[in-house]
Amino acid sequence: MQGGTSPRKVMVVAEPTRESAAALQYALSHAVLEQDELILLHVENPNSWRNTFSTFLRRPSVGSSSTVGSSDGGGGDVDFLEEMKHVCKATQPKLPVSVERVEMEGKDKASVILFRSITLRIDLIVIGQRRSLSTAILGCRRQVGSMRGTKAIDTAEYLIENSKCTCVGVQKKGQNAGFLLNTKTHKNFWLLA
Rank of each mutant, 00 (worst) to 15 (best):
V78T: 08
L133A: 09
L40K: 00
E157R: 07
T67P: 11
V43D: 01
P46Q: 03
V102C: 08
G63V: 10
T119S: 11
P96S: 09
D36F: 04
S66C: 09
T119I: 13
I127S: 03
Q35P: 09
V102D: 02
F80S: 00
E82P: 01
G128H: 01
S48Y: 05
S111C: 13
A136N: 10
F115V: 14
A27T: 08
I137W: 04
P46C: 05
E34V: 08
P93G: 00
T119C: 12
M147H: 07
K109E: 02
A27P: 00
L133D: 03
Q35T: 11
S111D: 11
Q143V: 15
S29E: 15
L114R: 04
D72V: 14
V99G: 03
L133H: 05
G106V: 07
E82A: 05
V126Q: 01
S146V: 03
R141S: 12
R50G: 01
G75R: 09
S61C: 13
L57M: 08
D108C: 11
S70F: 10
V126Y: 01
N47M: 14
R59A: 06
R59G: 02
L95A: 01
S65F: 13
S65R: 13
D108N: 12
L41G: 00
V32K: 00
K89S: 07
L95C: 04
I118K: 15
L95Q: 01
L133S: 07
L120M: 15
G128K: 01
V126T: 00
N51A: 11
L114F: 04
R131D: 12
Q35A: 09
P46I: 01
D108P: 12
